[in-house]
Simulated assay, not measured.
Amino acid sequence: MRPAPAIGDNSRMPTYAYRCRECTGTFELQRPMSESSAPATCPDGHADTVKLLTTIALTGSANSPAPVSAPSGGCCGGGCGCG
């Protein structure tokens, strides 16, 4: 079992991506979910920023079994109704 993160440890906080409307640069911030909608200032000091929608990758641990994929589509793969 992994020990609880130390106070001030950001390793378990979500990362949010932002785009600055003034300089068009993108940047990321790690912050608690409770602050996810709080305004963010870009690294160049501009305050006109917008949070970007991002996708996340969910992965299992090294000890979890690999996911099993079910057959789909194709003849006799369940999609055509012949099987």
Rank of each mutant, 00 (worst) to 15 (best):
G81H: 06
G73N: 07
T15Q: 06
E22I: 03
N63G: 15
S34F: 01
R2L: 01
D9T: 00
S36K: 12
C76W: 02
C76N: 09
C42H: 05
G25Q: 12
C20I: 03
T54Y: 01
P39Q: 14
C80G: 00
C82P: 05
A47F: 11
D48E: 14
E28W: 07
G74K: 06
Y18V: 03
P65D: 02
I7G: 07
A4D: 09
R31F: 15
P71I: 03
T55M: 02
P39S: 14
R2W: 04
A70F: 08
G78Q: 09
G81A: 09
A57V: 15
S69H: 13
N10L: 10
A57S: 12
S72C: 09
G81D: 08
T26G: 03
K51Y: 02
C76H: 06
G81Y: 10
G74A: 08
S36V: 11
G74I: 08
P67G: 07
V68L: 04
A57G: 09
P39E: 13
C76L: 11
V50F: 11
A47R: 11
A62L: 12
M1C: 09
P5H: 06
G83K: 07
A66R: 07
T41F: 01
L53D: 13
T59C: 13
A40H: 05
P67V: 12
S69G: 10
G81N: 09
H46I: 05
Q30D: 11
D44M: 05
N10G: 00
G8K: 14
T59A: 14
L52N: 00
G78V: 11
N10I: 08
C20K: 00
L52I: 00
A62Q: 11
H46A: 07
G77A: 02
E22H: 01
H46K: 04
G79H: 13
N63F: 15
G74M: 04
T24E: 14
M13K: 15
A62R: 12
C20G: 05
A70D: 04
T41V: 15
G60W: 04
P67S: 08
R31A: 15
P67C: 09
Q30M: 07
A38Y: 11
E22Y: 04
A6F: 08
C75H: 06
G25R: 00
S64F: 13
K51C: 08
E22C: 02
P14M: 01
S11A: 15
P71M: 00
C42L: 05
E35N: 04
D48A: 14
A38P: 03
S61P: 06
S64K: 14
T15R: 11
L52Q: 03
T41E: 05
A4L: 10
T49A: 12
E28N: 12
D48K: 10
A6E: 10
C82M: 04
I56S: 05
M33E: 15
